[in-house]
Design a binder for these strands. Structure first.
Lengths: 148, 148
DNA sequence: TGACCCATGTCAGCATTCTGACATAGCGTG
DNA sequence: CACGCTATGTCAGAATGCTGACATGGGTCA
């Protein structure tokens, strides 16, 4: 199982570990959201709208890290099911500001609590300063990756 | 844009930031792998095989964070294209140990260099101790999420 | 004003990944 | 030995997300 000195070395690669952590988080979220009949992307969209009402389809897509085509499909389903509303006509440009309906807000509440408990579990073994350090480091990684 | 005190608060959520970082890393990897005609999963599989020759389909799936069905589809394509080989019959049980062909090893070399450069860029703004701390923290997160 | 560029919403088709299901091999336990 | 339990490989179908393409709205600049 030795290292021939030329590979990326998965055992010590921060990139691999980052993917592993993200994958574990996603799996844990799916596990608690499934009983609520909600997917991660589904939840992400509602959470974004709760915190930033009036976001457009494209803005939601960027916030949930999917393409605007993918988010559009999701939004049409959410609109059909009565969780969100969009005006018929754009108040300015083509962007349609989206808002949660009371039903959507209600549906989000349970999901949000479930996701918060997952995040709490993830951070259980870490001190406050460690969490702050992690935040700073992850932000640096994002900035470096986007920069170029 | 205020916080009503009940949400997850995307601006300060480590979970959200983790997804953001992972998404940025994946995008950066796709960008450098695309010119080589290789996807991230594709690369992950070859890299795993380079470092741990003889891994089975299921083991590769776990290492690349996909289902064994997904990995099976990929392996069949890689085998058809001559990048990997699997014995006709399992030496023990049903597990088929997979190995890189010279062609697969050659194909991996460029990709591995490209991915290493992406990882280096990601870590550019971080000191050695910071990277070590990040490693420790991410491992703790994975352990906590898997534990329950 | 008109040409150009960029962002947006949306449709269609394709790729990737997942869930469900089945058969089989090894392993432990009664 | 016979029975369960688990892990594995594999096929089929469904869900999910992406790329490509097009039309439209708004801003910039000559």
């Amino acid at each position: 199982m030795g290292q021939e000195g030329v590979g990326v070395d998965l055992e010590t690669s921060l990139g691999y570990l980052l993917k592993e952590a993200s994958s574990a988080l996603r799996a844990a979220m799916e596990e608690v959201l499934r009983p609520l009949g909600m997917s991660v992307t589904h939840y992400s969209c509602l959470e974004l709208l709760a915190q930033r009402p009036g976001l457009s389809n494209s803005e939601l897509a960027r916030g949930a890290f999917v393409t605007r085509q993918t988010m559009n499909v999701l939004l049409q389903a959410l609109e059909r099911d009565g969780y969100v509303t969009r005006p018929e006509q754009a108040p300015v440009g083509k962007a349609l500001p989206t808002r949660l309906t009371p039903s959507g807000r209600r549906s989000l509440e349970k999901a949000s609590a479930a996701v918060r408990s997952v995040e709490a579990r993830m951070l259980a073994g870490l001190t406050g300063p460690e969490q702050a350090e992690a935040f700073r480091i992850l932000q640096s990684m994002v900035r470096s990756l986007r920069g170029s």
